[in-house]
Amino acid sequence: MSLKILAVLEQRDSKLKKSSFEVISKAAELASLSGGSFEAVVAASSVEDAAKAGEYGAAKVTVLSNAAFALPCSSGYAKAVADYAKASGANVLLLSNTAMGKDIAPRIAVKLDAGIMVDAVALGYEGGDLIATRPVFAGKALQEVKLTSEVKVITLRPNVFKAKVSSPGASAEVLSSAVDSPDLKERVTEIKKSEGKLDVAEADIIVSGGRGLKEAGNFNLVEDLADALGAAVGASRAVVDAGWRPHGEQVGQTGKTVSPSLYVACGISGAIQHLAGMSSSKYIVAINKDKDAPIFQVADYGIAGDVFEVLPALTAEIKKIKS
């Protein structure tokens, strides 16, 4: 099968999202491995930096444009992308498994009578087949899946695949294709941003706190370290349920799935539901006074000590090397 890949990009506030560059890089890699081709599309009212896709190897980006797309519109985006895929004859659609990617990928798959594999942490090309590896059962097992359909829709877990600048300074050709009759079944009327902070789902470094912090007020220790590292603050469910932290910060099965390059777990035991959300992080550091806590089973580096003593010292050391 010769792959004809459509990299489906995402914008927010008219700028491409970082996860979209990961999608382009993977599309470029698969196109070259399979001797196929790829192009990129993005549904938007306008995109300021679409040409930047060129640095990651995209020759062409088509903006599927409609004024109503200034605010996210899943039904509209899904239809616009599916229509474009049909017209262009794409047989593989790659998206990022973001909130938007998850929302639209199944709808696109239904429209194209395609098979779908979501949340891949690896995607290989073997003997003419695409094989996705995805975590299942809260990360306790991995599933390898293939699709038998002619058209395939695949989403990639954000932050797992590398965004590679292959042609520094290159610009993609940006085309615009007006979407005349968008499906506006659902419309976002407002986006309520959580207070100014970096979100765990998008952060490259996360410092998370658990019940070991003892009370809400002590989270300043976690925040200070996060500030020093330029990191987002995360939390276990125990502290979210206790009302110490907002639910948006919760990492784990009932919270967010994250894959940062560094995850620092402070006073978190490492229950399976917590691990489900963070075990694909590249490096994990655990600080927990119980040396037998399960978090040490997944951690790369650990300090089996008291968060109240270790965290201030760690923050000070980070500040020292950063200055």
Binding site: P72, T98, A99, M100, E186, R187, V188, T189, E190, I191, K192, K193, S194, L198, D199, A201, E202, H247, G248
Partner: peptide, 10 residues
């Protein structure tokens, strides 16, 4: 729920 906040959808 989305990354960094919430969307109000009608």
């Amino acid at each position: 729920e989305i990354e960094g906040g919430r969307e109000v959808v009608e």
